[in-house]
Amino acid sequence: MEELTDRVVQSTSLEPSIAKAAIGAVLMFLRDEVPEGRVAEFIDKMPGARAAVTAAQARGDGGLTQAIEGMTSFMGHGRADLNILIGKLANLGLNETQSRQLLEATLTRAEALIGPEGAAKIRAMLPEMAMRSGVTPQPPEEMRPRM
Protein backbone atom coordinates (compact mmCIF):
# COMPACT_ATOMS: atom_id res chain seq x y z
CA MET A 1 0.00 0.00 0.00
CA GLU A 2 2.85 2.36 0.82
CA GLU A 3 4.43 1.82 -2.59
CA LEU A 4 1.13 2.60 -4.32
CA THR A 5 0.54 5.62 -2.09
CA ASP A 6 4.03 6.95 -2.85
CA ARG A 7 3.47 6.46 -6.59
CA VAL A 8 0.12 8.25 -6.45
CA VAL A 9 1.57 11.12 -4.39
CA GLN A 10 4.44 11.52 -6.89
CA SER A 11 2.25 11.44 -9.97
CA THR A 12 -0.66 13.52 -8.66
CA SER A 13 0.95 15.89 -6.11
CA LEU A 14 -1.79 14.94 -3.65
CA GLU A 15 -1.21 14.96 0.08
CA PRO A 16 -0.50 11.39 1.32
CA SER A 17 -3.70 11.29 3.41
CA ILE A 18 -5.81 12.30 0.38
CA ALA A 19 -3.97 9.79 -1.83
CA LYS A 20 -4.67 6.98 0.68
CA ALA A 21 -8.34 7.95 0.88
CA ALA A 22 -8.61 8.01 -2.93
CA ILE A 23 -6.89 4.63 -3.23
CA GLY A 24 -9.25 3.26 -0.59
CA ALA A 25 -12.24 4.54 -2.57
CA VAL A 26 -10.98 2.86 -5.77
CA LEU A 27 -10.26 -0.42 -3.97
CA MET A 28 -13.70 -0.32 -2.31
CA PHE A 29 -15.32 0.24 -5.71
CA LEU A 30 -13.41 -2.69 -7.22
CA ARG A 31 -14.18 -4.93 -4.24
CA ASP A 32 -17.88 -4.07 -4.35
CA GLU A 33 -18.07 -4.72 -8.09
CA VAL A 34 -16.31 -8.10 -7.94
CA PRO A 35 -15.76 -9.25 -4.35
CA GLU A 36 -13.92 -12.44 -5.34
CA GLY A 37 -11.32 -13.47 -7.89
CA ARG A 38 -8.59 -11.13 -9.11
CA VAL A 39 -9.80 -8.11 -7.14
CA ALA A 40 -9.75 -10.05 -3.86
CA GLU A 41 -6.32 -11.45 -4.77
CA PHE A 42 -5.02 -7.93 -5.47
CA ILE A 43 -6.36 -6.58 -2.18
CA ASP A 44 -5.04 -9.60 -0.25
CA LYS A 45 -1.54 -9.26 -1.72
CA MET A 46 -1.20 -5.56 -0.95
CA PRO A 47 -0.43 -4.96 2.73
CA GLY A 48 -2.65 -2.23 4.11
CA ALA A 49 -5.24 -2.47 1.32
CA ARG A 50 -7.98 -3.88 3.57
CA ALA A 51 -7.40 -1.06 6.06
CA ALA A 52 -7.69 1.47 3.21
CA VAL A 53 -11.02 -0.05 2.14
CA THR A 54 -12.28 0.01 5.73
CA ALA A 55 -11.22 3.65 6.07
CA ALA A 56 -12.98 4.50 2.79
CA GLN A 57 -16.16 2.85 4.06
CA ALA A 58 -16.02 4.79 7.32
CA ARG A 59 -15.37 8.13 5.61
CA GLY A 60 -18.65 9.92 5.01
CA ASP A 61 -19.31 11.63 1.73
CA GLY A 62 -21.80 14.17 2.99
CA GLY A 63 -24.76 12.42 1.36
CA LEU A 64 -23.13 12.34 -2.08
CA THR A 65 -23.79 8.61 -2.50
CA GLN A 66 -27.47 8.91 -1.71
CA ALA A 67 -27.86 11.98 -3.93
CA ILE A 68 -26.26 10.29 -6.95
CA GLU A 69 -28.20 7.06 -6.42
CA GLY A 70 -31.42 9.04 -6.10
CA MET A 71 -30.79 11.04 -9.27
CA THR A 72 -29.79 8.05 -11.36
CA SER A 73 -32.69 5.95 -10.11
CA PHE A 74 -35.07 8.79 -10.93
CA MET A 75 -33.62 9.02 -14.42
CA GLY A 76 -33.93 5.28 -14.92
CA HIS A 77 -30.23 4.44 -14.85
CA GLY A 78 -30.27 2.32 -11.69
CA ARG A 79 -27.39 2.19 -9.22
CA ALA A 80 -24.48 4.26 -10.42
CA ASP A 81 -21.47 2.95 -8.50
CA LEU A 82 -19.05 4.36 -11.03
CA ASN A 83 -20.55 7.83 -10.76
CA ILE A 84 -20.38 7.51 -6.98
CA LEU A 85 -16.67 6.67 -7.18
CA ILE A 86 -16.01 9.60 -9.50
CA GLY A 87 -17.99 11.81 -7.13
CA LYS A 88 -16.00 10.57 -4.13
CA LEU A 89 -12.73 11.27 -5.89
CA ALA A 90 -13.94 14.75 -6.84
CA ASN A 91 -15.10 15.28 -3.25
CA LEU A 92 -11.56 14.45 -2.12
CA GLY A 93 -10.34 17.19 -4.47
CA LEU A 94 -9.04 15.08 -7.36
CA ASN A 95 -9.38 16.54 -10.83
CA GLU A 96 -9.73 14.40 -13.97
CA THR A 97 -5.99 14.20 -14.55
CA GLN A 98 -5.32 13.13 -10.96
CA SER A 99 -8.11 10.54 -11.16
CA ARG A 100 -6.56 9.15 -14.35
CA GLN A 101 -3.12 9.02 -12.71
CA LEU A 102 -4.60 7.33 -9.64
CA LEU A 103 -6.25 4.65 -11.77
CA GLU A 104 -3.12 4.05 -13.80
CA ALA A 105 -0.96 3.74 -10.67
CA THR A 106 -3.48 1.34 -9.13
CA LEU A 107 -3.54 -0.81 -12.26
CA THR A 108 0.26 -0.79 -12.47
CA ARG A 109 0.44 -1.98 -8.86
CA ALA A 110 -2.17 -4.65 -9.59
CA GLU A 111 -0.04 -5.88 -12.48
CA ALA A 112 3.01 -6.14 -10.21
CA LEU A 113 1.08 -8.12 -7.59
CA ILE A 114 -1.20 -10.38 -9.65
CA GLY A 115 0.36 -10.30 -13.09
CA PRO A 116 -0.64 -8.75 -16.41
CA GLU A 117 -3.59 -11.09 -16.97
CA GLY A 118 -5.04 -10.37 -13.53
CA ALA A 119 -4.57 -6.63 -13.98
CA ALA A 120 -6.21 -6.84 -17.42
CA LYS A 121 -9.30 -8.36 -15.81
CA ILE A 122 -9.46 -5.50 -13.33
CA ARG A 123 -8.80 -2.98 -16.10
CA ALA A 124 -11.69 -4.43 -18.10
CA MET A 125 -14.02 -3.70 -15.17
CA LEU A 126 -13.40 0.01 -15.58
CA PRO A 127 -14.35 0.79 -19.19
CA GLU A 128 -16.61 3.75 -18.52
CA MET A 129 -14.37 5.23 -15.88
CA ALA A 130 -11.37 4.65 -18.06
CA MET A 131 -13.12 6.36 -20.96
CA ARG A 132 -14.06 9.31 -18.76
CA SER A 133 -10.58 9.60 -17.28
CA GLY A 134 -8.60 8.80 -20.43
CA VAL A 135 -7.25 5.39 -19.34
CA THR A 136 -7.70 2.89 -22.16
CA PRO A 137 -8.99 -0.44 -20.85
CA GLN A 138 -7.55 -3.63 -22.29
CA PRO A 139 -9.85 -6.67 -22.33
CA PRO A 140 -8.57 -9.85 -20.69
CA GLU A 141 -6.68 -12.18 -23.04
CA GLU A 142 -9.54 -14.70 -23.19
CA MET A 143 -11.93 -11.94 -24.32
CA ARG A 144 -9.73 -10.60 -27.13
CA PRO A 145 -10.61 -11.58 -30.70
CA ARG A 146 -8.43 -14.33 -32.18
CA MET A 147 -6.61 -13.50 -35.39
Score class of each variant (00 low, 15 high):
residue 1 M to T: 11
residue 1 M to D: 14
residue 2 E to N: 15
residue 2 E to G: 12
residue 4 L to M: 09
residue 6 D to N: 15
residue 7 R to F: 01
residue 7 R to H: 12
residue 8 V to R: 00
residue 12 T to N: 04
residue 15 E to Q: 12
residue 16 P to D: 03
residue 16 P to H: 01
residue 16 P to V: 04
residue 16 P to A: 10
residue 16 P to G: 04
residue 17 S to N: 11
residue 20 K to C: 04
residue 21 A to Y: 03
residue 21 A to S: 13
residue 22 A to V: 02
residue 24 G to V: 03
residue 26 V to F: 04
residue 26 V to C: 06
residue 28 M to D: 14
residue 29 F to D: 07
residue 31 R to S: 15
residue 32 D to P: 01
residue 33 E to A: 01
residue 33 E to S: 09
residue 34 V to N: 07
residue 35 P to C: 02
residue 37 G to K: 02
residue 38 R to N: 13
residue 38 R to S: 05
residue 39 V to N: 07
residue 39 V to L: 10
residue 39 V to Q: 01
residue 40 A to W: 02
residue 40 A to L: 06
residue 43 I to W: 07
residue 45 K to P: 03
residue 47 P to Y: 02
residue 47 P to R: 08
residue 47 P to D: 13
residue 48 G to N: 11
residue 49 A to N: 03
residue 49 A to W: 05
residue 49 A to H: 05
residue 53 V to M: 09
residue 53 V to P: 09
residue 55 A to L: 06
residue 56 A to F: 02
residue 56 A to Y: 04
residue 59 R to D: 01
residue 63 G to S: 14
residue 64 L to G: 10
residue 65 T to Q: 10
residue 65 T to P: 06
residue 65 T to G: 06
residue 65 T to V: 10
residue 68 I to D: 02
residue 71 M to G: 10
residue 72 T to M: 05
residue 73 S to G: 08
residue 74 F to C: 01
residue 75 M to R: 06
residue 76 G to L: 00
residue 78 G to E: 00
residue 80 A to S: 06
residue 80 A to C: 01
residue 81 D to F: 01
residue 82 L to V: 11
residue 82 L to Y: 10
residue 83 N to G: 12
residue 84 I to Q: 00
residue 85 L to H: 02
residue 85 L to M: 00
residue 88 K to E: 15
residue 89 L to M: 10
residue 89 L to T: 08
residue 90 A to I: 13
residue 92 L to V: 10
residue 94 L to P: 08
residue 95 N to Y: 07
residue 96 E to G: 09
residue 96 E to R: 14
residue 97 T to S: 12
residue 97 T to E: 14
residue 98 Q to T: 00
residue 98 Q to D: 02
residue 98 Q to H: 03
residue 99 S to Q: 15
residue 100 R to Y: 01
residue 100 R to C: 00
residue 102 L to D: 10
residue 103 L to V: 09
residue 103 L to E: 02
residue 104 E to M: 12
residue 107 L to G: 09
residue 107 L to M: 10
residue 109 R to Q: 15
residue 112 A to H: 09
residue 112 A to Q: 15
residue 115 G to W: 13
residue 118 G to W: 07
residue 118 G to N: 08
residue 119 A to W: 03
residue 121 K to Y: 07
residue 122 I to V: 15
residue 122 I to R: 12
residue 123 R to T: 08
residue 124 A to F: 04
residue 124 A to W: 08
residue 125 M to H: 12
residue 125 M to N: 12
residue 127 P to C: 04
residue 127 P to K: 06
residue 128 E to A: 11
residue 129 M to G: 15
residue 129 M to W: 08
residue 129 M to V: 10
residue 130 A to S: 14
residue 130 A to C: 11
residue 132 R to L: 14
residue 133 S to I: 03
residue 133 S to A: 13
residue 133 S to Q: 14
residue 134 G to F: 01
residue 134 G to E: 04
residue 136 T to W: 09
residue 139 P to S: 02
residue 143 M to A: 15
residue 145 P to R: 11
residue 145 P to L: 09
residue 147 M to C: 04
